[in-house]
Design a protein around this nucleic acid. Structure first.
Length: 463
RNA sequence: GGCGGAGUCGCCAAGUGGUAAGGCAAUGGUUUGCAAAACCGUCAUUCGUGGGUUCGAUUCCCACCUCCGCCUCCA
């Protein structure tokens, strides 16, 4: 698979270092609230990346962390009057439920920061021993940026630019901790009054780990000093991933991630998403509006991951129809293949262009287009050909993580009163009593049921 | 101020130095008592604006406009 690499700013074929398993790390959520669709754009695209590899017959090792200790989790758990663990567990469970609803495969390993404090302390000790970090008087530990010449290679920021950024922002929060250089970042935060009971013992006193370090330590634990790919939202490029590179390369040697995959932020109605604008949707918000998680997923993969995706409610409605169209086509293929069976096959057939798009820098919208184009041809097939097409369709849909809505007619239970109304209308219609017939149809519509007339029978569907 | 990304039909969105995929919506027809559904069609001489290079640009170059991200703990 060809994939853009943030570090070299070029497309590279991604291959496993060990020649067998694609081992990659994705920065997971900070569990202090429900993730929003912007967060999910990242997680869904990472999921497609993994699915595409697996569909291609490859093995993967997917590691994604949970950030369950940081300023926000501590602050909000205290505000909620809960222990940090109770609070983060609750949001972790919500995150898992949302991921499942969005058809994201659970990572093979999902380490939590709190459960890896010893590994983090060990890494800090190594960094100090090697001269890349120092502790300050208050018991915090900082990474010494000047000790790592490659600092800035991922975000392409040189020292002058970093300095400029600082002066510009002039840090309202500049000094809670003491450090040698303002660019140095914290590895271990000394315990503060407002941390409450959330602190751990360390050689430098009580405190808690810095955010960047959590990931480096967990990566070292599960993926070692070198692995195939590291991913996250674009905003993590600097400083988070830049700092991870510094920590990990200095502590472990190795070349850390061979490939950097960053997903661009989405826009909502052409502008940025923000709480104050009321356009920060969570999955639950959208479900409350009557959309299904699969429709949300469809929209999220509807744009290339390196381009801004403009999320609108209108595109969500479009997704609903597009999924229905796919489901109909799928049923049509099943019907046309007769007694044949859609055996799994390595051949994509008419969907080969869709598969090629997916493998060309994860071009998901190109793949979706390829599916519809292929379907135009495939729905004319019969017997073996139709069976082969259905197998190909199932395979490409699986790679995209799309499951089709069940549009079979007899899957809904019709309440008795609705059934009676429908019978009454059918009788009126049979007697050519159009007035009564239309009136009853409206009545059914008000109750949320659509009555569609066939030649000799009718069909009731929930609207 | 620095670095980076984006502007393609009403909406979402691919793509390419050789004349614009796909989905939604819309719309015509068949069908229907009328609808719905289904099926068959139609739907960008044009790719933010202005220049330039070229036989030819939406695709390359320059300028400008607009939007977005990052510049120390935000996916």
């Amino acid at each position: 698979m060809k994939l853009q690499d943030t570090l070299t700013r070029s497309q590279k074929e991604i291959r496993p270092i060990d020649g067998q398993t694609y081992r990659f790390y994705c920065c997971g959520p900070t569990v202090y609230g429900a993730a929003h669709i912007g967060n999910f754009r990242t997680f869904v695209l990472q999921d497609v990346f993994r699915r595409a590899l697996e569909t291609g017959g490859n093995r993967t090792l997917h590691v994604r962390n949970l950030t369950d200790v940081d300023d926000k989790t501590i602050r909000d758990s205290q505000a909620a009057g809960q222990t940090l663990k109770a609070f983060t567990d609750k949001w972790r469970d919500k995150f898992h439920a949302d991921c499942k609803a969005l058809a994201c495969l659970p990572p093979h390993i999902e380490p939590s920061a709190v459960e890896h404090i010893p590994q983090q302390i060990a890494m800090i000790a190594t960094l100090i021993a090697k001269g890349h970090a120092y502790s300050s008087d208050d018991g915090s530990v900082y990474f010494k940026i000047s000790s790592f010449p490659n600092y800035g290679k991922l975000s392409h920021l040189d020292e002058r630019e970093l300095d400029l950024g600082k002066t510009q922002n002039a840090r309202a929060n500049s000094d809670e901790y003491e450090k040698d250089s303002i660019s140095d970042f914290v590895l271990w935060k000394a315990r503060r009054e407002d941390d409450g009971e959330n602190f751990w013992e360390s050689p430098w006193g009580q405190g808690r780990p810095g955010w960047h370090l959590e990931c480096s330590a967990m990566i070292a634990e599960y993926l070692g000093d070198s692995f195939d790919m590291h991913s996250g939202g674009v905003d993590l490029v600097f400083p988070h991933h830049e700092n991870e590179i510094a920590q990990s390369e200095c502590a472990c040697g190795g070349h850390f991630a061979a490939h950097w995959f960053h997903i661009t932020h989405l826009l909502v109605d052409g502008g940025k998403m923000s709480k104050s604008l009321g356009n920060m949707y969570t999955l639950s918000d959208l479900e409350a509006k009557g959309f299904t998680p699969m429709e949300v997923r469809y929209v999220l993969i509807g744009a290339h991951y390196r381009k801004p995706l403009n999320f609108t409610l209108e595109s969500l409605s479009g997704a609903k129809e597009a999924l229905n169209k796919l489901a109909k086509a799928s049923n049509k293929l099943a019907e046309n293949m007769g007694t044949e069976t859609a055996l799994p096959s390595a051949d994509f057939g008419v969907f080969q262009p869709a598969w090629d798009s997916l493998n060309d820098d994860l071009n998901t919208p190109g793949a979706l287009g390829g599916i519809f184009t292929g379907l135009r041809e495939a729905t004319k097939f019969t017997g073996k050909e139709a069976a082969a097409a259905l197998a190909g369709l199932n395979r490409i849909l699986k790679a995209l993580g799309i499951t089709l809505p069940d549009i079979s007619k007899d899957n809904t239970d019709v309440p008795t009163d609705i059934q009676q109304l429908a019978e009454a209308r059918w009788a009126a219609r049979s007697n050519k009593d159009w007035a009564t017939s239309d009136k009853l149809r409206d009545e059914l519509a008000e109750k949320g049921w659509a009555m569609k007339d066939g030649k000799d029978s009718y069909e009731l569907t929930k609207s």
